[in-house]
Simulated assay, not measured.
Amino acid sequence: MSLIVTPFGFSSTAAQVAQGVDLTGRRALVTGASSGLGAETARALAGTGAAVTLAVRDVAVGERVAKDIAEATGNRDVHVAHLDLADPVSVTAFTAAWQGPLHVLVNNAGVMACPEQHTEEGWELQFATNHLGHFALATGLHDALAADGAARIVVVSSTGHQQSPVVWDDVNFAFRRYDPWLAYGQSKTANVLFAVEATRRWADDNITANALMPGAIYTNLQRHIEGRSSGSVPVELIKTVEQGAATSVLLATSPLMQGVGGRYFVDCNESETVDRRTGTLHGVARYAVDPDNARRLWTLSEELVANAG
Rank of each mutant, 00 (worst) to 15 (best):
A46H: 06
S35H: 04
K239Q: 06
A128P: 13
A46T: 05
R228F: 15
A66S: 04
V104D: 02
Q117D: 06
P214Y: 12
A246W: 03
R263M: 09
L281H: 08
V192P: 01
P291D: 04
A306G: 10
D205P: 01
T247A: 10
G47N: 06
R277C: 01
A245K: 06
E236A: 09
T139V: 15
K188D: 07
A252R: 12
Y218V: 14
V196L: 01
S157N: 03
N293Y: 02
A285E: 10
Q243K: 11
G140V: 00
G49N: 08
Q16T: 07
G62C: 06
T240I: 11
V249K: 13
R152D: 07
L300E: 14
N293V: 00
T129Y: 01
T219N: 07
I4T: 13
P115Y: 06
V78G: 11
S2P: 15
L297V: 09
A55C: 11
T48H: 10
C268P: 03
D143Y: 02
L193N: 02
G149H: 09
E197Y: 02
L83Q: 05
A209E: 00
A195D: 02
E226R: 15
I4H: 14
A72M: 05
S2R: 14
V167D: 02
A70L: 09
W168I: 12
A33M: 05
T240E: 07
T73M: 14
T129M: 04
V167K: 02
P255A: 10
F8C: 09
V91F: 05
C268D: 05
S12K: 04
G160A: 15
D267V: 08
G227R: 12
N269K: 05
E121Q: 15
G140Q: 06
F135P: 04
G261N: 08
Q186K: 04
A86I: 00
A33C: 10
L182M: 12
A146M: 10
T253K: 04
F135Y: 14
N307M: 12
T280P: 06
V5T: 15
L251K: 13
M213G: 06
N210R: 01
Q19N: 12
G160C: 09
D77C: 01
Q163H: 08
P165E: 11
H142Q: 13
H142G: 03
N220K: 14
G227E: 10
R295L: 03
T247H: 13
M1Q: 11
N206K: 14
A128C: 11
A28R: 09
A294I: 07
Q99E: 15
E303W: 01
S11N: 10
